[in-house]
């Protein structure tokens, strides 16, 4: 039998890392499912029974249904539009790097990664409200546009690994530029679409600052916003706060589990040679 070699150092690091991540997670769950009385008795202990009223109260206080809907609406469209448009922009740049216009765009987007958001925050809000887009729609547009710099960078790196012959073959087969992108290139961008999708979803779902400055109508508030209000009002009731955090967290865990299966290497395997 072949003995499997363990890299003990790496394993220890991984275990320590996992504990650092799992411990707060454990605490969140424990606090969320305990009654205030049980929490006072023991912070880390497992409760005798799950205290569901934390969740029901949190749902009613945060108007969970509506806020969840708002967050979902913004996140869903931010992700879909980001993937569809940013991949297209990246494709155009990646295949035209010989032209100075596209090369210039590449470096323009690339440099935008280094602009700190707070610097442009206020002018941006003024601009968006001036054109009547200081709402959810405007927020979605900003996520799509602000993702461009990083996403284009990521997409282009991957596009370079897709052999040009595939496009030439499709071209000879009768495809136009549009068909080549949607039928050949876009499906092959799967792993990058998943990466960009996950990052955009996490950003849009958890973002606090942009919704705070952009949204004036309380009916459009997202989960992080209402949690903030909730936190300041009920700061003494940790159980309610953590129950609300837990409910906000679960959709992202689902998104990650679903998308991460797409982040696999070797999607272009078999294309050439």
């Amino acid at each position: 039998m072949v003995r499997t070699k363990y890299n003990w150092l790496a394993t220890v690091f991984l275990i320590v890392g996992a504990v650092f991540i799992l411990f707060p997670m454990y605490m969140t769950i424990m606090v969320a499912i305990k009654s205030p009385f049980e929490l006072a008795q023991s912070l880390l202990g497992i409760p005798a029974r799950i205290f569901w009223s934390n969740f029901t109260q949190a749902i009613s206080i945060t108007h969970y249904g509506q806020t969840f809907g708002n967050s979902f609406f913004i996140t869903f469209f931010a992700v879909v539009l980001t993937i569809l448009t940013n991949s297209m922009v990246a494709y155009a740049i990646a295949r035209n790097m010989h032209s100075w216009i596209f090369k210039g765009m590449y470096y323009y987007f690339f440099s935008a990664m280094f602009v700190p958001f707070p610097i442009i925050m206020l002018p941006l809000v003024r601009q968006m409200s001036a054109i009547g887009l200081a709402d959810s729609i405007g927020l979605i547009i900003l996520y799509v546009v602000y993702g461009l710099s990083f996403n284009v960078f990521v997409y282009i790196g991957y596009l370079r690994s897709i052999p040009l012959e595939l496009e030439e073959a499709a071209w000879v087969d009768g495809a136009g530029r549009w068909t080549i992108f949607w039928r050949i290139i876009f499906p092959l961008l799967g792993p990058m679409n998943a990466t960009v999708g996950i990052l955009t979803a996490l950003w849009a779902w958890n973002d606090f600052l942009l919704p705070l400055v952009m949204l004036s109508d309380p009916n459009q508030y997202t989960l992080p916003l209402v949690q903030y209000a909730f936190q300041s009002q009920y700061s003494t009731n940790y159980n309610l706060a953590f129950a609300s955090y837990l409910m906000a967290l679960l959709p992202m865990v689902v998104v990650y589990v679903v998308f991460q299966r797409w982040i696999i290497n070797g999607v272009t395997k078999g294309a050439i040679k």
Binding site: E165, A271, I272, K273
Partner: peptide
Amino acid sequence: MVFQNYALYPH
């Protein structure tokens, strides 16, 4: 056209 590296659509 048949390409040197086949250029089959992998997906």
